[in-house]
């Protein structure tokens, strides 16, 4: 009857979202008066999960699941849910979780609510608040099925620490045919990804050309931030598609979003609005982004960015 949470990892270490969904699962378990069971895939040391309220861990170690496979992962999480007779299953809003959750929902005959931003407002009927219309609205939604799957929006619930310890047991579910096979992965491993980043530095057409992105990258590197861009910038081929953020690009829900030379079109804002603090740097004081931002600098990116980078370097050196 425990609440089951899928805690994601990469190369044997938990991703930050794992601790956020664990914190969320603990909140749901408290509401329901039950415990939290986490399911992990190919993680040796799972003790860290105890710090976020997990009571028990089902550890799956399986070479066939070395690289992510939605069907395979959904299948083993399903078996974990059945073993625990879980009525609530928590996943994140990472690309992987969003990929596997609908398959899991079909497998468990469970209703699934994605992009959920708070602990349930009620557990009977099971009621959650989620974002809809690409962050232009919130929707209160009820899940009517016996088993419920909640996809928690990244960086919405936050981390809640608990000083408990999580016991672990090995779990060996059976895996059917995977159907989709990874042939190759092309990924910059030394860069912070938009999905994981606390801070995102994003550039628009105001930066004039790809040759000027050094400025953006240097600022990002001082802040330990990921780099992103507006849609025209990726359409023009100045930056890869994977950096395009907005309604039709990647969603951003960082703590800090710095927009440089981006006008703030509604489609751009929709995709980044979930970020907590927004800073805009733009020569045009009438740019719509100023209406959506918390802090703004009216100025030329080519003057402001190098200075800001220097100031931040000095600030970091003092810390």
């Amino acid at each position: 009857m425990s609440v089951l949470v899928y805690t994601e990892s990469e190369q044997g270490s938990f991703k930050k979202v794992a601790f956020e969904v664990a914190s969320y699962a603990k909140a749901v378990a408290d509401q329901l008066g039950t415990s939290v069971t986490a399911v992990t895939i190919n993680v040796d040391d799972t003790s860290e999960l105890g710090n976020y309220g997990v009571d028990n861990v089902l550890k799956i170690s399986n070479d066939a699941l070395q690289s992510f496979n939605a069907k395979g992962y959904a299948e083993v999480i399903k078996q974990a849910a059945e073993k625990e007779a879980a009525k609530v299953v928590i996943v994140s809003s990472s690309a992987d979780s969003k990929y596997l959750a609908p398959l899991l929902a079909v497998g468990l005959n469970a209703g699934y609510a994605s992009n959920v931003i708070e602990a349930p407002t009620n557990t009977a009927p099971f009621t959650v608040k989620r974002t809809a219309f690409t962050n232009k609205a919130f929707e209160t939604s009820q899940i009517n099925t016996d088993i419920k799957i909640v996809g928690v929006s990244n960086n919405s619930f936050g981390l809640v620490e608990h000083s408990s310890s999580a016991s672990a047991e090995d779990f060996s579910p059976t895996i059917a045919e995977l159907g989709v096979k990874v042939e190759s992965i092309d990924k910059a491993t030394d860069k912070v990804t938009i999905a994981d980043a606390d801070i995102v530095v994003s550039g628009g057409r105001g930066l004039k050309g790809p040759e000027n992105w050094g400025l953006v990258e240097e600022l990002a590197s001082v802040l330990g931030a990921a780099t992103a861009c507006s849609k025209p910038v990726s359409d023009l081929g100045w930056r890869p598609h994977s950096e395009h953020v907005g309604q039709t690009g990647k969603p951003v829900a960082s703590n800090l979003y710095i927009a440089i030379g981006i006008s703030g079109a509604i489609q751009h804002l929709a995709g980044i609005n979930a970020s907590k603090v927004k800073v805009v740097i733009n020569t045009d004081p009438e740019a719509p982004f100023f209406k959506a931002a918390d802090y703004g600098v009216v100025g030329d990116a080519f003057e402001v960015i190098p200075q800001l980078t220097e100031k931040l370097k000095a600030f970091k050196a003092q810390q």
Partner: peptide, 8 residues
């Protein structure tokens, strides 16, 4: 995928 792409 996060930070890149994969061929399947």
């Amino acid at each position: 995928i996060d930070g890149g792409k994969e061929t399947v």
